[in-house]
Simulated scan of single mutants.
Amino acid sequence: MTQTAPSSGPVTTADDAGRLSDLILQLQEKGLRISGPLERRPGGAGPSDAGMIWVEGSPVTVPVDAGYVGDSPYEMLSEDSGHGIYRDGVRLASATPANRPQFYDLSTADGTPYWKLALMHLDSLASTVLQTCAYWGNDDQCRFCGIGVSLDSGSTVKVKRPEQLAEVAVAARDLDGAVDITLTTGSTYGKDRGAFYVSKCGQAMKEASGLPVEVQFEPPTDLAVIDTVRDRGIDSLGIHVESFDPQVLARVAPPKARTGIERYFETWEYAVERFGEGQVTTYVILGMGEDPELTIEGCKRAVDIGVYPFIVPLRPVPGSLMADAVPPAADYTERIARAVAPELVRRGLTADKVAAGCARCQACSALGSLERSIQLGMPSMPGGIPARSAS
């Protein structure tokens, strides 16, 4: 099982958890220089420009191909046994690069390579089931999104069929140790916004593999759609607002701005009643010029109703409308995450309780390691509102 966590396991002391979260924040800002082969996700609608590694046993995705990475002080070097992450010649942590998944060598009966249907993100199997979006290529296109980039590159197919994905899920579980499934979709103009199809795919994959499934979609116009998703056996939902700052949404994601932040809260409350606290999550992207006070306030309000705000630094997607942006400073991301992590711990909504999806994985965020540092006894750092970060 090539993608399971290394035997060193996650950190077990508060000090170690704190050092790990600091390192993850720095790597996600500055990137990691590498000199050998590394399983990566170069672009598209997932963790973009992502080198996939385990750092001290914890899953981490870091920029490896962006132009600014060449100036990073962090590099991964081979050692007598394994790899290490170094800065200025000083070893900071052990590192285990993810291997190329074995199931990538297989194809469906009609000749479609499995890797065009779903990808391994460390220990999570992920797919965009509809690789088109009603907003792509027009004035509504979300500036941070790259859903059309993968399709144009020929690295995926437009529509993944449930029976194909079920086949892949079994192979990823058996050959590469996949522990959950994360499915997203381009939005449609229908009342379900794509929820019906993505949950149909998730149902087929779960029935075939037994793995827990998260599906991601926009707030449907009819909230009863969420009941159908639940009845299909889906474990977790990702309904992503992206930013709690209305001005940022209007600039970077016009359709989400028209939906309105209050509609997201209405949808989350409905979903939490059906899926349970901690099983409804939302992406919160930092570094797009958002007001940090609004961001922290929105995250805390989400936590209060049982929603997990998955805080991530902007990861510019090559080929997207924000391709020339850079991630926010690590201290900006850290201070917002440190204001939210204690609230998650207090409410019992920590990442280890999420059944499936991005918040379960935590590879694109330092939030999970901050939660562990609090749980293990590290005092929370003083709060305070950081200065606004612009992309």
Results as ranks from 00 to 15, higher is better:
residue 24 I to M: 00
residue 100 R to W: 13
residue 40 R to A: 08
residue 204 A to K: 03
residue 369 S to E: 12
residue 248 V to F: 02
residue 291 D to N: 02
residue 270 Y to V: 04
residue 219 P to H: 02
residue 340 V to W: 03
residue 217 F to T: 03
residue 363 A to N: 07
residue 172 A to Y: 08
residue 261 I to V: 12
residue 156 T to G: 08
residue 233 G to T: 05
residue 379 P to Q: 14
residue 200 K to P: 11
residue 183 L to T: 00
residue 269 E to F: 03
residue 196 F to N: 13
residue 177 G to D: 05
residue 324 D to L: 07
residue 41 R to C: 14
residue 177 G to T: 01
residue 296 I to N: 06
residue 321 L to V: 13
residue 41 R to K: 15
residue 156 T to R: 04
residue 134 A to G: 10
residue 313 P to W: 03
residue 26 Q to A: 15
residue 325 A to K: 01
residue 198 V to R: 01
residue 72 S to Q: 06
residue 264 Y to A: 01
residue 214 E to L: 08
residue 71 D to S: 13
residue 7 S to V: 14
residue 209 S to V: 10
residue 381 M to R: 15
residue 138 N to R: 01
residue 38 L to D: 04
residue 203 Q to G: 09
residue 242 E to F: 06
residue 31 G to D: 05
residue 108 T to P: 11
residue 147 I to D: 00
residue 127 S to C: 11
residue 249 L to D: 03
residue 12 T to D: 07
residue 126 A to G: 10
residue 337 A to H: 09
residue 383 G to C: 01
residue 373 S to L: 09
residue 266 E to G: 10
residue 46 G to K: 02
residue 239 I to N: 00
residue 153 S to L: 13
residue 140 D to T: 12
residue 282 T to M: 09
residue 39 E to V: 11
residue 248 V to A: 01
residue 312 V to H: 03
residue 260 G to I: 06
residue 257 A to K: 04
residue 98 A to T: 10
residue 286 L to D: 02
residue 21 S to A: 15
residue 179 V to M: 08
residue 389 S to I: 11
residue 64 V to G: 06
residue 3 Q to R: 01
residue 118 A to S: 03
